[in-house]
């Protein structure tokens, strides 16, 4: 599914290397988690994969089902099945949430040569999915993320994910800023999308999220690359001992 090999990335405007030989493979249907101290390059990795400006790839490859992600525009990556749930979802005044969702869904369908959803079909679909995430009609009507609480923003990310039905979902600290109940709700939303084929890459600081979204593999990232990979127990180890021991191991 997602294959990243020796990815090297620097900031476009500065001589600062962020990813230093990052390699990772997430097979179909698996959930992988990435943990790591602040500044290790986790968010940058998610931005580079989804095509954000401001980064320069100086080496390595990233493919989704053998398609070269790095050669595609952000919208092409999305249509190819990549989805990033933002750590800080952007507020867009003046663009209705519903209009945004419908435009996104239909843009992707169009790009894949599928028929666009009719307004009625779309409405039916979005209402059903919104309900399970406890997103009310008012939130759908409001401008994208404007005035949403932290929890509402994250639920809105999951709603987009549910509507767009991507193959590969990257969740960038989706648990940050959430209380326990909101985290459960979000985790349930994610688990509902686990169908044995869809893959997930969950970036988090805390083991707690992984109690709700059970990973197959846990990776530890530091200084721009993966330094250790293991089973779910690795997350527990970090929770108890912090990163210091792991960092010392590789030093």
């Amino acid at each position: 599914m997602l294959k990243i090999d020796n990815l090297q990335v620097k900031l476009e405007d500065e001589d600062k290397q962020i990813l230093k030989g990052f390699s990772l493979e997430v097979p179909e249907g698996e959930v992988h988690a990435i943990m790591g101290p602040n500044g290790s390059g986790k968010s940058t990795m998610s931005y580079v994969l989804s095509g954000k400006n401001g980064y320069e790839v100086t080496g390595g490859t990233a493919t989704l089902d053998d398609m070269d992600l790095l050669d595609m525009e952000p919208e092409e990556r999305a249509a190819a099945g990549l989805f990033l749930a933002f750590q800080y979802p952007v507020e867009i005044p003046g663009v209705g949430n519903m209009t945004f969702l419908r435009t996104a869904v239909n843009s992707q369908r169009k790009a894949r040569g599928e028929d666009e959803l009719s307004a009625a079909d779309f409405l039916k679909l979005v209402r059903a999915k919104a309900k399970s995430l406890k997103i009310d009609a008012d939130m759908l009507k409001r401008p994208v993320n404007v005035g949403f609480s932290g929890g509402e923003k994250k639920r809105n990310e999951i709603l987009q994910m549910a509507m767009l039905e991507p193959k590969m979902c990257i969740l960038d600290e989706t648990d940050s800023g959430l209380d326990v109940d909101a985290m459960k709700l979000v985790a349930e939303g994610v688990n509902a999308l686990r169908d044995g084929k869809r893959s997930f890459l969950v970036i988090t600081h805390y083991q707690r999220l992984l109690d709700h979204i059970k990973p197959d593999v846990v990776h530890i990232m530091a200084d721009g690359k993966i330094i250790k990979s293991g089973g779910p127990d690795l997350a527990l180890e970090v929770e108890h001992n912090g990163y210091a021991d792991l960092l010392a191991e590789v030093a």
Partner: peptide
């Protein structure tokens, strides 16, 4: 970037904004 990352082509995303 937010709009395009959801699959909306850049020119259309510009128009939405």
């Amino acid at each position: 970037f937010y709009l395009t990352s959801r699959g909306i082509p850049r020119p259309q995303a510009v128009d939405m904004l």
